[in-house]
Design a protein around this nucleic acid. Sequence first.
DNA 1: GTACAGATAAACT
DNA 2: GTTTATCTGTACA
Length: 212
Amino acid sequence: MSRLGRDHYARDTLEVAPALLGCTLVHAGPDGVTSGRIVEVEAYQGEDDPACHAAAGRTGRTEVLYGQPGHAYIYLIYGMYYCLNAVTRAQGLPSAVLIRALEPLEGLDRMRGRRFARARRRTPVVDRDLANGPGKLCDALGLTLEHNRLDLTGDTLWIEAGVPPAEIAWSPRVGIKVGTERLWRCFDPESPYVSRTRLNHEVASEPSPVMS
DNA sequence: GTACAGATAAACT
DNA sequence: GTTTATCTGTACA
């Protein structure tokens, strides 16, 4: 499958998000390749989106969101986990797609090792739990702050075209306290690798409210 | 199956 | 000093 070019990311975030479902996220790290099929994402679009980190304006952390689309935005959350986004839209329009869950494809043993190695882990990790959450997938793929701002059209971290899911479901975004009225999380309702959440039942067939 | 507490540090005010 | 786009183990149904 072919690597997604910058034009794929340089669109409205609500177009890019569903288009990433079924694509393959690949990390070619120093100790091998790990990859997975994207089955769940969320859109964060602009300073007017209260849940977007850019709602607070341009800061050191959000600077990458204002830059060229097709770059990685990675941040530390709750002092312990990393979250990976793909910057979308255009320079000056801070927007991104949060990659929330993967179906593991390549490097399963390495993913199991990384996930188990986390200090607080005391039980083995079943394959379904390797990357079914934004923090888990960064752990499984070995992504940290050092990968922040990487160009996704480069040869370290990229996304390849894939087979889109038969259906796409939309729900409120997870873990936020503002902007929950926007159904901007989308996922493959047939995938067992989607993150475990009761929001999976509050679904619609379109994002709403649709605004840009 | 659901509910809750606690871990933990960068970025921000 | 406060906030946070999470995850895990434990408790209970």
